[in-house]
Measured scan of single mutants.
Amino acid sequence: MLSDEDFKAVFGMTRSAFANLPLWKQQNLKKEKGLF
């Protein structure tokens, strides 16, 4: 599990902003970052 700081560094957004994205968009971002 990423820390909040690492999460923001990897995804360029906060966890709450990420959580507001549609599920497909979350999955695409995870795949792009190799976290899926």
Score class of each variant (00 low, 15 high):
Arg15Pro: 07
Lys33His: 12
Asn28Phe: 14
Gly12Arg: 03
Leu29Thr: 02
Lys33Leu: 15
Ser3Ile: 04
Lys31Gly: 07
Phe18Tyr: 05
Leu29Ile: 09
Arg15Ala: 06
Leu2Cys: 10
Leu29Trp: 04
Leu21Val: 01
Gly12Ser: 03
Lys8Leu: 15
Ala9Pro: 01
Ala17Asp: 13
Phe7Leu: 01
Leu21Lys: 01
Phe18Glu: 00
Ala9Cys: 14
Asp4Pro: 05
Gly12Glu: 04
Phe7Glu: 00
Val10Trp: 11
Trp24Phe: 05
Arg15His: 04
Ala19Asp: 12
Leu2Phe: 10
Phe36Ile: 14
Lys8Thr: 09
Gln27Asp: 12
Asn28Glu: 15
Asn20Met: 14
Asp6Ile: 09
Glu5Leu: 10
Gln27Arg: 14
Leu23Glu: 10
Arg15Ser: 04
Thr14Lys: 02
Phe11Glu: 00
Phe7Val: 01
Asn28Thr: 13
Lys8Arg: 10
Leu35Met: 13
Trp24Tyr: 07
Leu29His: 03
Phe7His: 01
Arg15Thr: 03
Leu2Gly: 05
Ser16Pro: 05
Ala19Thr: 07
Leu23Asn: 06
Ser16Asn: 10
Leu29Gly: 01
Phe7Ala: 01
Pro22Ser: 05
Asn28Lys: 15
Lys33Gly: 05
Asp4Val: 04
Val10Gly: 01
Thr14His: 04
Lys30Trp: 15
Phe11Ser: 01
Lys30Pro: 02
Leu2His: 06
Lys33Gln: 07
Ala19Val: 07
Gln27Pro: 01
Phe11Lys: 00
Lys25Pro: 01
Arg15Cys: 07
Met13Ser: 01
Glu32Ser: 10
Pro22Ile: 02
Leu29Phe: 04
Lys33Val: 12
Lys8Cys: 11
Phe7Asp: 00
Asn20Asp: 12
Ala17Val: 09
Leu23Asp: 07
Leu35Gly: 09
Ala17Tyr: 05
Ala19Met: 14
Leu29Tyr: 05
Gln27Ala: 13
Ala17His: 06
Lys25Ile: 13
Gly12Lys: 04
Lys33Asn: 09
Met13Phe: 06
Leu23Lys: 10
Lys33Thr: 08
Lys33Tyr: 10
Lys25Tyr: 09
Asn28Cys: 15
Met1Gly: 12
Gly12Asp: 04
Phe18Lys: 00
Ala9Ser: 11
Lys8Tyr: 15
Gln26Pro: 00
Gly34Lys: 06
Glu5Lys: 09
Lys25Phe: 10
Ala19Gly: 09
Asn28Pro: 01
Phe18Arg: 00
Lys8Pro: 03
Gly34Gln: 08
Leu29Met: 09
Met1Phe: 14
Ser3Met: 05
Asp6Ala: 13
Lys31Asp: 08
Leu23Arg: 11
Leu35Phe: 15
Asn28Ala: 15
Leu35Gln: 11
Phe11Thr: 02
Phe18Gly: 00
Phe18Ala: 00
Asp4Phe: 04
Asn28Ile: 14
Met13Asp: 01
Thr14Trp: 03
Met1Arg: 10
Ser3Arg: 05
Val10Ala: 07
Gly34Val: 07
Asp4Gly: 04
Gly12Val: 00
Lys33Cys: 07
Phe18Ile: 01
Lys30Thr: 11
Val10Pro: 00
Leu35Pro: 07
Ser3Asn: 10
Lys8Ser: 07
Lys25Ser: 06
Phe7Asn: 00
Asp4Gln: 04
Lys25Val: 13
Glu32Asn: 08
Ala9Leu: 12
Asn20Phe: 06
Arg15Gly: 02
Leu21Glu: 03
Ser3Lys: 06
Met13Gly: 00
Ser3Ala: 06
Asn20Arg: 13
Lys30Gln: 13
Asp4His: 04
Leu2Ile: 10
Lys31Leu: 10
Ala19Ile: 09
Phe36Pro: 09
Phe11Asp: 00
Leu21Ile: 03
Ala17Cys: 13
Leu35Asp: 10
Lys33Phe: 10
Phe36Arg: 09
Met13Asn: 00
Phe36Met: 13
Val10Glu: 04
Phe36Lys: 08
Gln27Lys: 10
Gly34Ile: 08
Asn28Trp: 15
Glu5Cys: 07
Leu21Ser: 02
Thr14Ile: 04
Lys8His: 12
Phe18Leu: 02
Lys30His: 08
Gln26Ser: 02
Pro22Lys: 02
Met13Leu: 06
Leu35His: 10
Ala17Phe: 06
Leu21Pro: 01
Lys8Glu: 15
Thr14Glu: 07
Gln26Lys: 04
Leu29Asp: 01
Gly12Leu: 03
Leu35Ala: 08
Phe7Gln: 00
Leu35Glu: 09
Phe11Ala: 01
Met1Gln: 12
Gln26Gly: 00
Ala19Glu: 14
Phe36Ser: 10
Thr14Gly: 05
Pro22Leu: 02
Asp6Ser: 08
Ser16Leu: 13
Gln27Met: 13
Trp24Asp: 07
Leu29Val: 05
Ala9Glu: 11
Ser3Tyr: 04
Trp24Gln: 06
Phe11Leu: 04
Phe7Gly: 00
Trp24Leu: 06
Asn28Gly: 08
Leu21Asp: 01
Trp24Arg: 04
Leu23Ser: 07
Thr14Pro: 05
Ser16Ile: 12
Lys25Met: 14
Lys31Glu: 10
Asn20Cys: 14
Ala9Phe: 11
Ala9Thr: 13
Gln27Thr: 11
Glu32Met: 09
Gln26Arg: 06
Leu2Ala: 05
Arg15Val: 06
Phe36Gly: 12
Ala17Arg: 06
Lys30Gly: 07
Lys30Val: 15
Lys33Ile: 11
Asp4Ser: 05
Glu5Thr: 07
Thr14Asn: 06
Phe18Gln: 00
Val10Gln: 07
Thr14Phe: 03
Phe18Ser: 00
Ser16Met: 13
Ala9Asn: 12
Ala19Ser: 10
Asp4Tyr: 03
Ala9Trp: 08
Phe7Arg: 00
Phe18Asn: 00
Lys25Ala: 12
Pro22Trp: 03
Glu5Phe: 07
Leu2Met: 12
Trp24Gly: 04
Val10Lys: 09
Ala19His: 12
Phe7Ile: 03
Asn20Trp: 05
Lys33Asp: 03
Trp24Lys: 05
Gln26Ile: 02
Lys30Met: 15
Asn20Pro: 00
Gln26Glu: 00
Asp6Val: 08
Ser16Trp: 12
Leu2Lys: 04
Ser16His: 11
Pro22Gln: 03
Met1Trp: 15
Trp24Asn: 06
Lys30Asn: 08
Leu29Asn: 01
Ala17Trp: 04
Val10Asn: 04
Glu32Asp: 09
Ala9Lys: 14
Met1Asn: 12
Lys30Ala: 15
Leu23Tyr: 13
Ala19Arg: 12
Glu32Thr: 08
Ser16Glu: 15
Phe7Thr: 01
Met13Pro: 00
Asp6Arg: 08
Pro22Glu: 05
Ala17Pro: 00
Lys33Glu: 03
Met13Glu: 01
Arg15Gln: 06
Ser16Thr: 12
Pro22Cys: 02
Leu35Asn: 10
Trp24Met: 05
Gln26Asp: 00
Asp4Met: 04
Pro22Val: 02
Ala17Thr: 08
Glu5Val: 08
Asn20Ala: 15
Lys31Ala: 13
Gly12Phe: 02
Leu2Gln: 06
Leu21Trp: 02
Phe36Leu: 14
Lys30Tyr: 15
Ser16Cys: 02
Ala9Gln: 10
Phe11Ile: 03
Lys31Gln: 10
Trp24Ser: 07
Glu5Pro: 05
Leu35Val: 13
Leu23Pro: 11
Thr14Ser: 12
Phe36Asn: 11
Asn28His: 14
Phe18Pro: 00
Gly12Asn: 06
Leu23Gly: 08
Lys30Asp: 04
Glu32Gln: 12
Lys30Ile: 15
Met13Arg: 01
Leu21Gly: 00
Leu2Thr: 06
Ala9Ile: 14
Glu5Met: 08
Leu23Trp: 13
Met1Leu: 13
Met1Lys: 11
Ala17Gln: 14
Ser3Gly: 06
Lys25Arg: 11
Asp4Ala: 05
